[in-house]
Design a protein around this nucleic acid. Structure first.
Length: 529
RNA sequence: GAGCCGUUAGCUCAGGCGGUUAGAGCAUCUGACUUUUAAUCAGAGGGUCCCGGGUUCGAGUCCCGGACGGCUCACCA
């Protein structure tokens, strides 16, 4: 075996892929990866991680065993009853009255899709599109409705008591007596959170139930009767549902948040009752905010995918989600520039390694999409671009670009570097504009500052064609006149007036590039206040 | 209380299977650039690797115990 081959790579997806391949030896069977999405809320960073990470393992499998077929299922539980209206959807009061119904039967509060979950799935597709992942979205409601789950639902009816025996010890005392693996959908009020099973009849494929349960916003209607559990008239509860999917699709590999460790253990026992084998599991850590608290989806803490995409190239996001899934990682807005710089660093290293033909053990082997820039031959960093943005203002992208290309002409030397630099610029501008700029304190020019500004305006007005050096000299002359002992003191007030910061670029060159006219305008506005 | 995960510089993090003096980036400080208070360059400081035991010639790394932090222990997915 080649010593630089995928079998010797230590990155976690390779380790996982080897674990997976060892499990069924030389089997030629298709390997099934599963990730899940609960469409009772908007997709978020965790959703993305849940699809991305198994796809990393899948990629490693392909590198190690190229002949092995595989598929990645993203299972969408749109049969779930809505328990709470998320804070970030419109028309919340309008949605309120559908609480307790499966999300696939609730109208879209955004008004553009066929259902609540339909909308969330649309958002999910949009979220996943730029990732270029090969995957299949599978809707729970369709699987139930078209009967694909029926054979296993019958099995659940047969193993009813055994499943209950497994579950009951994990429940609170007061809930033990009433628990059932089935949740029928009430034909009268359409709620799924409101039904309670009273009896089950494996031979008829039915359960008896009454609509009397108050849970997750449900308002029981009192209906009672006997209904088939097949064909989408009932669903099974979470841990049983997970087991059912594993059984039906033959899932080999599933990543989940560590909050699901206990669920996975139980579902694993259930899937054995159903004649299946639990998949290889991989619990990953949650994301933390600046204070080290768990990032919440409903509350506005943490960083949203939209923010990521606005402030960082998509590859940097993938890179972030690649690194260290077993470690809780802090993610907050102020840390984004750092993560982007980390990615750029990795990209430079990757390009260098690529030249030596040993790119396999780089995270970028997993992160780069076909259309991603694959090298970055510039020392440009997020912080550098942001500093320049601070100086040049965020409104004029062209000016910034001119400045950067003059700063480092290598940006233009190849297509990949240029595209990456453009992305970097766009992100840094967004970050600066949204996040840093609003926090800047407006500077109140003092008497002396006004004098300095006026003198500079006069000079620039009379000598609009002055060179960078001549402008620099003129500023220094102003300084010499005012502060004979330390002429350099003239600069800070100018930085403050022009760019609201204490330090900045060499002013001569800067003013030349930004054009004297523009600087005159800025100073005059400052004086007018 | 039980289980899982974590704790390395001010911050974010690296440290394959134990091996020399524990690293990086950012931040901080100093200096240089014959006209800047820099975005450049050079340099510096900064660590009880959470604590205590153990195994070992040798422990940030392995084992045991403890502290601290996070999460889970729901008819939620």
């Amino acid at each position: 075996m080649n010593s630089s081959g995928p079998n010797n790579c230590r990155l976690w997806p390779y380790e996982e892929a080897r674990r997976l391949l060892e499990r069924d030896g030389d089997g030629a069977r298709e390997i099934v990866f599963e990730g899940g999405f609960g469409p009772s809320g908007l997709p978020h960073l965790g959703t993305m991680a849940e699809v991305l990470r198994p796809s990393f393992v899948r990629h490693a499998v392909r590198l190690i065993a190229p002949q092995r077929r595989s598929r990645l299922i993203v299972f969408i539980d749109d049969m779930d009853g809505l328990r709470k209206v998320p804070e970030n959807v419109p028309e919340r009061e309008r949605v309120e009255r559908y609480l307790g119904q499966p999300v696939s039967r609730i109208p879209d509060p955004f008004g553009c899709c066929e259902s609540f979950s339909g909308h969330m799935v649309k958002l999910l597709r949009e979220l996943l599109r730029p990732l270029h992942l090969e995957h299949e979205l599978i809707l729970s409601s369709e699987m139930y409705a078209n009967g694909r789950f029926d054979p296993i639902l019958r099995l659940v009816l047969e193993k009813y008591q055994e499943i209950i025996d497994l579950m009951v010890p994990t429940l609170r005392d007061e809930n033990r007596a009433a628990w059932s693996p089935f949740l029928p959908i009430c034909p009268s009020c359409e709620q799924v959170n409101s039904t309670r099973v009273i009896a089950h009849h494996p031979e008829r494929g039915t359960v008896e139930f009454s609509c009397e349960r108050t849970f997750g916003g449900s308002r029981p209607c009192g209906f009672s009767g006997e209904r088939s559990v097949l064909g989408g008239q009932a669903k099974v509860q979470w841990k049983v549902d997970w087991a059912m999917r594993w059984r039906l699709f033959g899932v080999d590999y599933e990543l989940y948040g560590k909050d699901l460790i206990d669920s996975a253990r139980l579902s694993g026992q259930i899937v054995r009752l159903l004649g299946g084998t639990p998949p290889l599991g991989f619990p990953f850590e949650m994301f933390l905010d600046e204070e080290g608290r768990k990032v919440s989806k409903s509350v506005g803490r943490g960083v949203t995918v939209e923010q990521w995409q606005r402030y960082a190239p998509i590859e940097a996001l993938k890179y972030f989600l690649f690194v260290n899934p077993r470690r809780a990682r802090k993610l907050f807005l102020a840390a984004i520039p750092q993560y982007v710089d980390e990615y750029l660093e990795e990209l430079r290293a990757y390009a260098a390694a690529k030249d030596e033909e040993k790119p396999l053990d780089s995270p970028l082997e997993f992160v780069l999409a076909p259309d991603s820039p694959r090298r970055f031959n510039s020392d440009l960093s997020f912080s550098l671009v942001m500093n320049v943005a601070a100086a040049l203002g965020v409104s004029d992208r062209e000016l910034m670009w001119n400045y950067l290309t003059r700063y480092d002409p290598a940006i233009l030397a190849d297509e990949d570097t240029r595209r990456m630099a453009e992305a970097l610029l766009a992100c840094a501008l967004n970050f600066r504009r949204d996040y840093l700029e609003p926090a800047l304190l407006p500077y109140e020019p003092q008497v002396q500052d006004r004098l300095i500004a006026q003198k500079l305006i006069d000079f620039l007005t009379t000598s609009p064609e002055a060179s960078a050096r001549e402008i620099e000299t003129a500023i220094y002359d102003i300084g010499r006149a005012l502060f004979p002992e330390k002429p350099g003191k003239v600069f800070q007030p100018l930085y403050r007036m022009i760019m609201q910061q204490d330090r900045g670029p060499r002013l001569g060159a800067f003013i030349r590039l930004a054009t004297p006219q523009r600087v005159i305008g800025i100073l005059e506005r400052r004086l007018a206040n």
